[in-house]
Design a protein around this nucleic acid. Structure first.
Lengths: 222, 222
DNA sequence: TTGACATTCAAACGATCGTTTAATACAAAC
DNA sequence: GTTTGTATTAAACGATCGTTTGAATGTCAA
């Protein structure tokens, strides 16, 4: 049987992919410096030299994790929110909030993924590398602007852009907090993050933020 | 002149205090593993062996930072909120929210302190050591219970305790977010965190959370 | 079979890590 | 002055770090 070029195995950079997968988890969990190249390559079941062979050095692997894992995942999450919204006939503010809350907390990524995804970002905020600016420019800033564009039509025209921006940040803050502070929440509330609880959390966020934004509307129009 | 024992210099563990001060900042900024003992002792202007002399080892210095810096600072913040509230004749929900928002964001600690204080906590959440449980048991859990006790009288009796707990967490999440995500917020809003802006942020948090909790009240009593 | 290329591997490099040691400096007590 | 105990210092320890090297292995085209 003649093999076709199309069926041919992707010459697979399989080791490269495994390195990205495993190192993302380790970097998120322990931080860049706390993870050794030996730990990464051990976890990825490959030779010590593989990091330098595929990525040049450890730092470039770290940057590549953001380029090839973190950013694509955010685009996936974002796509989920967009799909949710475009499936609706009318789009109110609560739909927008729910779209993003669901996308982040109950969307296309697993619970485990979400947690280390957030942890990576927090570590960048505490100790920025070139990854932070890349991520803010490519993902966070555009997303923020898009949300602003979505919400604005539902709000009074004279609402100051600062109040709108602050409202978006506070809403996002609630979503993010439940995404990363689960250990603390579980300890204090004595409550596991099972699907039922997560669903109640999303409902809570939506109604809480809705009331916040609607209140804003009233204040302004008075 | 005879020296009195009471005037006698505190035999000052000055080096010990400097080690705590400097290492807290470094640990918060870079993480435990990313900071070397040499960097700490260099920053504290003392000999390399001082860490082991005063704290036994590096990890115990880290734990001591939480015991002797982080937890006392939280008690200081908490005291600020309590003082604010006890200076009022009547205490409404908005007073409670403002008390804690001010205590955290505009209270007795400096902006720099607040940032590394939060970063230390985030690192603990991402990669818990024995410090996390200590901090949750001694500070966070009690504070949460106290806030609950303060707010409860102003809410309908039939409000589920879960909804109350979630409301507290969401309110806290807003406060914390503005405490640690300043780099991102500044980048996106193109706005420095000067005192005027901080004051508007606090007002925003108070009204946003107030509307959220009041909405909760209405939902429940229907 | 041969040659070219991509990948994996074991071994070693110098640098830096946390920690230990033993000597020294210094002040107060006797 | 001597003793005592605390604090600081320089030097060294073995372990581990990121990275480099050069050989071994596998793959496919010629």
């Amino acid at each position: 049987m003649e093999e076709t070029t199309s069926v041919k195995q992707p010459v697979t950079d399989n080791t490269r992919e495994r390195l990205l997968d495993r190192s993302e988890i380790l970097f998120a969990h322990k931080g860049f410096a706390a993870v050794s190249v030996r730990e990464i390559t051990g976890s990825a079941n490959c030779n010590l030299s593989a990091v330098n062979y595929y990525f040049g050095n450890k730092m470039n692997l770290y940057i590549s994790v953001f380029k090839e894992r973190w950013i694509p995942r955010m685009k996936q999450v974002r796509q989920y929110a967009d799909d949710y919204l475009s499936s609706r006939q009318t789009i109110g503010i609560s739909d927008i909030i729910r779209a993003f809350a669901k996308a982040f907390l109950d969307g296309p990524i697993t619970d485990e993924e979400r947690i280390y995804h957030f942890h990576l970002m927090q570590r960048e905020i505490a100790h920025p590398t070139e990854a932070l600016k890349m991520v803010v420019d490519e993902i966070i800033h555009p997303m923020h602007k898009d949300i602003r564009g979505l919400i604005k039509p539902s709000l009074p025209e004279n609402l100051s852009s600062e109040k709108l921006a602050l409202s978006i940040f506070t809403t996002i803050s609630m979503i993010l907090y439940f995404g990363f502070a689960q250990p603390v929440i579980s300890l204090v509330m004595d409550q596991k993050f099972d699907p039922a609880f997560k669903s109640r959390v999303i409902d809570h966020i939506v109604s809480f933020a809705m009331n916040g934004i609607n209140g804003l509307k009233k204040e302004e129009t008075v």
